[in-house]
């Protein structure tokens, strides 16, 4: 191993390491709209977009509104031989709420409602002050780190595919009516996916750093 050299902060900031394979690269200004990749493992390092910050905040806010709509409006209802049954999203996730199944209920609420909301909130908190004004809010770094950590656990889009499968299973048994909450949820899944494609985490961190110092 070569002798460790002491780098200055400015020298360190001129470098970036690939988060996947640890290869060092010189930080270069990537033109808006293109992306830089790790030379060794091809992981995307930065992909800056024009006015991405504003768009991400807007999409996250849209996501919160849609999530509220998905909670409030009717989700699905079925009819069969005179019996009918309505279900809201909360009914769906509280299906396991008796006895030994209760922990699963709580986990389901967390995965499809609570964690996606928390993640959207954290993104808004970290980025909105920078999108509207200039300086980030206090604790913005912590909020954005939380948003990053929650990413795999927010499963709203998986839930909507699950609903689609369930609908096919029921279709033979009963007449189905799809409520507005279903469409709100489907739109939410799309909005979240779009937000994640726009968000380039290394660029967000760089911006957070620059604006925190000035």
């Amino acid at each position: 191993m070569p002798v460790a050299k002491a780098y200055t902060r400015a020298e360190l900031d001129g470098l970036v390491a690939c988060p996947a394979c640890d290869a060092l690269h010189r930080r270069v200004d990537v033109p808006v709209g293109s992306r830089s990749r790790c030379l060794r493992c091809h992981t995307v390092l930065t992909a800056p977009r024009n006015s991405a910050m504003t768009q991400i905040v807007m999409l996250a806010a849209t996501g919160v509104v849609l999530m509220v709509a998905a909670m409030v409006f009717p989700f699905l209802s079925i009819d069969a031989r005179g019996f009918s049954q309505n279900s809201s999203v909360l009914d769906a996730v509280m299906a396991f709420s008796d006895g030994i199944m209760l922990p699963l209920s709580i986990a389901t609420v967390a995965l499809i409602v609570f964690l996606p909301l928390l993640r959207l909130g954290a993104v808004i908190y970290a980025l909105a002050p920078m999108a509207i004004g200039y300086a980030p809010a206090k604790g913005a770094a912590r909020a954005f780190r939380l948003a990053q950590a929650l990413k795999p656990w927010a499963m709203a889009e998986i839930f909507i595919i699950g609903v689609a499968v369930a609908l096919v299973k029921i279709a033979g048994l009963a007449t189905l009516t799809i409520g507005p909450a279903f469409w709100a949820f489907a739109a939410l899944a799309l909005v979240m996916a779009l937000k994640d494609t726009l968000m380039c985490r290394l660029t967000v961190w760089k911006t957070l750093e620059q604006r925190r110092l000035s």
């Binding site: 769906a92 996730v93 509280m94 998986i158 595919i161 699950g162 499968v165 369930a166 009963a174």
Partner: peptide, 25 residues
């Protein structure tokens, strides 16, 4: 891909909240 395995758990959640039709099913 790993997280997509949760689909079946959600299917069970939806079916068991929705399909309660008295004595029918």
């Amino acid at each position: 891909i790993g997280r997509w395995s949760m689909i079946d758990v959600f299917v069970v959640a939806i079916l068991s909240s929705l399909v309660h039709l008295g004595s029918v099913v």
